[in-house]
Design a protein around this nucleic acid. Structure first.
Lengths: 139, 139
DNA sequence: AAATAATTTGCAACCATATTGCAAAATGGT
DNA sequence: ACCATTTTGCAATATGGTTGCAAATTATTT
């Protein structure tokens, strides 16, 4: 469990820089999804904004994290499960956004059900976001 | 079919202004979803940016249009079906984003399937976005 | 139809978020 | 330790969105 971030970087042939390691560690120690702003806060602005943007983009490109669609014009990112590869995400699980604590949680065990699309539509990726009250806030 | 936008405005007790009518007409004549930038372009900047933002917000509040979550930090809007009301959307249909033409289409007839969440999670709203190739671009 | 009240618009200014070019710094391979 | 390559950070710029307020438009009253 020590230095799992380094393993991940090595596995993807990414150079081990402070920012990549730091941001990846943050994801590994966070349960839910993170927005760019969260990352800036939680890393105490140790890295330049631009570096954070580029690092996130790199991680998405390499299939280390994935994006979660939102309706408030921010982008959320969360760790991919182990079987994601560069250029091809398999993050077919449901995301849950809590209306109280506003955290976004990956429900890794809840897979997105298949839907039947109208004739001619060819799906390649599905995202499902459920809003509601999470298990922590339900009381 | 003439002046359906006026009907819609009247039904919601909204004053009939040029911008509301114009923007609503645009939605009525567009098949897919629209982003703020699309609206500015297609109305030839006839209305102020601020007016467009406020008009969209008003339409969302009154249940005339709904927002579609995206992963590119924009907000998409699309017409609601008839049974939406102020403050309460029933737009539980699937949205399709085409990777080729980049249009977003409401699949009004494909309703979002129910999923079983882990114990303690209480859902209130579900969004589902499918990416792929649409019926127009499939060839 | 004119006058008034209420709402909406447009402008200016502002803030937040995101991207690009480029020089300096850090990393990896030899 | 050196050098080629990649990554970082800064500055500048672009894009997206909000707020306050006066002017204009719409609705209401008479």
């Amino acid at each position: 469990m020590i230095a799992k971030s380094l393993d991940l970087l090595k596995k993807n042939n990414l150079s081990k820089t402070e920012s990549r390691k730091g941001i990846l560690d943050l994801f590994l120690h966070t349960n839910g999804a993170l927005a760019h702003a969260d990352i800036e806060k939680k890393t105490a602005a140790a890295f330049d904004r631009v570096t954070v943007y580029r690092t996130l983009q790199t991680f998405v490109d390499y299939g280390i994290i994935h994006q979660i669609p939102t309706t408030d014009n921010t982008i959320l990112y969360a760790l991919c499960k182990d079987d994601c590869e560069a250029g091809h995400h398999h993050d077919e699980h449901v995301h849950f956004v809590c209306n109280k604590c506003e955290n976004t949680i990956c429900l890794d065990d809840v897979i997105v059900p298949k839907v039947k699309l109208p004739k001619g539509f060819q799906p390649s990726q599905v995202a499902m976001v459920v809003r509601g009250v999470c298990v922590v806030c339900k009381n």
